[in-house]
Amino acid sequence: KFGRVHERAEGPAKILAIGTATPFHWVDQSSYPDYYFRVTNSDHLVDLKEKFRRICNRTMISKRHMFLTEEILQKNPNLCSHNEPSFDVRQDILVSEIPKLGKEAVLMAIDEWAQPKSKITHLVFCTRSGVDMPGADYQLIKLLGLSPSVQRVMMYQQGCFAGGTMLRLAKDLAENNKGARVLVVCAESSAIGFRGPSEDHPDNLIAQALFGDGAAALIIGSDPKMGLERPIFEIVTTAQTFVPNGDCHLALHLREMGLTFHCTKDVPPTIAKNVESCLIKAFEPLGISDWNSIFWILHPGGNAIVDQVESTLGLEPNKLQATRNILREYGNLSSACVLFILDEIRKKSGREGLKTSGDGLDLGVLLSFGPGLTIETVVLR
């Protein structure tokens, strides 16, 4: 008597548009150690500064975009301390800036989509910054002038794996609601975790050397309108798992001094060791076991992770080039990073006149991972 209210779509979910945005301000990685130790009044920690310089040199990052300028840091000195309470200051900045950054990426996506924004039916927003109620999803709806009846899902504090999570959720929403057009937004800022150095917490140096700011937005829907919408990728399958006891290797915690970062040297080999089982589960039903026969979007948690995944799986050097390019130009953008790589690989395919948006290949994989050593596996066509 009370059956399904919403009719299912006929076809699989497809990515119809991609937009990205970054803050205008950026830092050069080669000179960042001098800048970082100067603005945090830590130049007296000579040995720690040299250690940080070595870490920065190993990241293979060229530059990173950041909202925090020297002027902002001078006005808010607690942000430059390692342990002073600064959460309220971070909140005041990020509750406002995260939706604005997301808006810039959304406008780029809508411009490519070339359809009225009134056709957006759902919003899925993800960030690890600016936790608030009502959330960044609500603020973004107002900034864009979208209908208050847009169906919203707000996900805070997920971390680097969440780019894949957003695709998984959007696929379910698009395929189970005929005519749905799902706006996916990942907006991230390193301002939540920026803090001064400490000899007692070397993990913090890794975070300060890796993370950048950026937002990515996608429009996802099934059954694209012929002649009006141009699909870029099809989302074939999605899956999530985590490595048992992985939280002892990688975890982040909200504290009075901001978001703290805990990471062990076992993260790269542990991820590399567990990736292939995810690939087998995803691609065995499709008859694929040659990992060089697919295109790759791999989250660059750090250069060591990229190198070890490449080595463990025997990947050809060009397979992870898009990942390395984004890491070099932006650093680790947390949940937004794989979506930047997705954009990079389709643009490169277009520039080179390849037959598909995925490096000329039919199928590919998007792998994202993060806290708890959670792994998201997304098969794309």
Rank of each mutant, 00 (worst) to 15 (best):
K1E: 14
K1H: 00
V5P: 14
V5E: 13
H6T: 11
H6F: 05
H6P: 08
E7Q: 10
E7V: 09
R8S: 05
A9Y: 10
A9Q: 01
E10D: 09
E10Y: 08
G11N: 01
P12Y: 11
P12Q: 08
A13K: 00
I15F: 04
I15K: 06
L16I: 09
I18M: 04
I18S: 03
G19I: 13
G19K: 03
T20I: 02
T20W: 08
T20N: 02
T22F: 10
F24I: 15
F24W: 12
V27L: 07
V27T: 15
D28P: 03
Q29G: 06
Q29S: 08
S30N: 04
S30R: 09
S30L: 07
S30E: 15
S31A: 04
S31R: 08
P33E: 14
D34Y: 00
D34A: 05
Y35S: 07
Y36A: 05
F37L: 08
F37K: 08
R38W: 04
T40L: 06
T40V: 07
T40N: 06
N41L: 01
S42T: 02
H44E: 09
L45V: 04
D47G: 11
K49F: 14
K51V: 10
K51H: 01
K51G: 01
K51Y: 12
K51I: 10
K51L: 06
R53P: 01
R53N: 10
R53C: 01
R53K: 07
I55L: 10
I55R: 15
I55K: 07
I55P: 00
N57G: 10
R58C: 12
T59S: 12
M60S: 13
I61H: 14
S62C: 03
H65D: 07
H65W: 00
M66T: 14
L68V: 10
T69L: 01
T69E: 09
E71S: 09
E71Q: 03
E71F: 06
I72L: 09
N78D: 11
S81D: 08
H82V: 08
N83K: 09
N83G: 13
E84D: 10
S86V: 11
V89E: 15
D92K: 07
D92Y: 07
I93Q: 12
I93E: 14
I93A: 11
L94D: 02
L94F: 11
V95G: 14
I98V: 05
L101C: 07
L101T: 10
G102A: 15
K103Q: 13
E104V: 05
A105Q: 01
L107H: 04
M108I: 10
M108K: 15
I110Q: 09
D111H: 14
D111M: 05
E112C: 02
W113Q: 00
W113C: 03
A114D: 11
Q115S: 03
P116K: 13
P116S: 11
P116R: 04
I120F: 01
T121L: 05
T121K: 01
T121G: 03
H122G: 03
L123Y: 09
L123E: 02
L123S: 00
V124M: 15
F125C: 13
F125E: 02
C126R: 01
T127A: 07
T127L: 07
T127S: 08
S129W: 12
G130H: 09
P134F: 11
P134A: 13
A136T: 10
D137E: 10
Y138I: 06
Y138M: 12
Y138W: 12
L140C: 03
L140T: 00
L144V: 00
G145D: 11
S147G: 07
S149A: 02
P231M: 03
F233I: 03
F233N: 02
F233H: 06
I235V: 02
V236L: 13
V236G: 07
T238M: 06
T238Y: 01
T238H: 12
T238W: 05
A239C: 08
Q240W: 04
Q240Y: 00
T241A: 10
V243C: 09
P244I: 00
N245T: 04
D247H: 15
D247Y: 07
C248F: 05
H249A: 10
L250A: 14
L252P: 15
L252R: 11
L252D: 15
H253Q: 14
R255V: 05
G258T: 10
T260Q: 15
F261Y: 15
K265P: 12
K265V: 02
D266Y: 07
D266F: 11
P268T: 12
P269A: 13
T270R: 06
T270A: 14
I271Q: 05
K273E: 08
K273M: 01
K273G: 11
K273Y: 01
N274H: 15
E276R: 07
E276D: 05
S277W: 14
C278T: 00
L279S: 04
K281C: 04
E284N: 13
E284M: 03
E284V: 01
L286V: 02
G287A: 10
G287K: 03
I288L: 05
S289Y: 15
S289L: 05
D290G: 06
D290P: 01
S293C: 00
I294K: 07
I294D: 15
I294F: 03
I294L: 10
F295G: 05
F295Y: 12
F295V: 13
W296G: 05
L298K: 11
H299Y: 07
H299M: 04
G301C: 12
G302A: 11
N303E: 13
I305D: 08
I305K: 00
D307G: 05
D307P: 11
D307T: 00
D307K: 11
Q308D: 10
S311N: 09
G314Y: 12
E316T: 13
E316A: 11
K319V: 04
L320K: 01
L320N: 01
Q321G: 03
A322D: 10
R324L: 02
N325Y: 12
N325G: 10
N325S: 13
I326A: 15
L327E: 09
Y330D: 01
G331S: 08
N332I: 04
N332C: 02
N332K: 10
N332R: 10
L333P: 07
L333I: 09
L333Q: 00
A336F: 01
C337K: 13
V338A: 09
L339E: 13
L339K: 10
F340R: 07
I341E: 08
I341Q: 09
I341L: 07
I341D: 11
L342R: 06
D343H: 05
D343T: 02
E344L: 04
E344M: 10
I345W: 05
R346G: 01
K347E: 04
K347P: 02
G350W: 01
G350Y: 13
R351A: 00
E352Y: 03
L354M: 14
L354E: 03
T356P: 03
G358A: 09
G358H: 03
G358P: 10
G358Y: 09
D359Y: 02
D359T: 04
D362S: 00
D362I: 00
D362P: 10
G364I: 00
L366V: 10
L366Y: 06
L366N: 14
F369D: 15
F369H: 15
G370P: 05
P371N: 06
G372P: 15
G372W: 07
L373N: 15
T374P: 15
T374E: 13
T374G: 14
E376P: 14
E376K: 03
E376N: 09
T377G: 06
V378P: 15
V379Q: 14
V379R: 14
V379M: 13
V379H: 14
V379G: 15
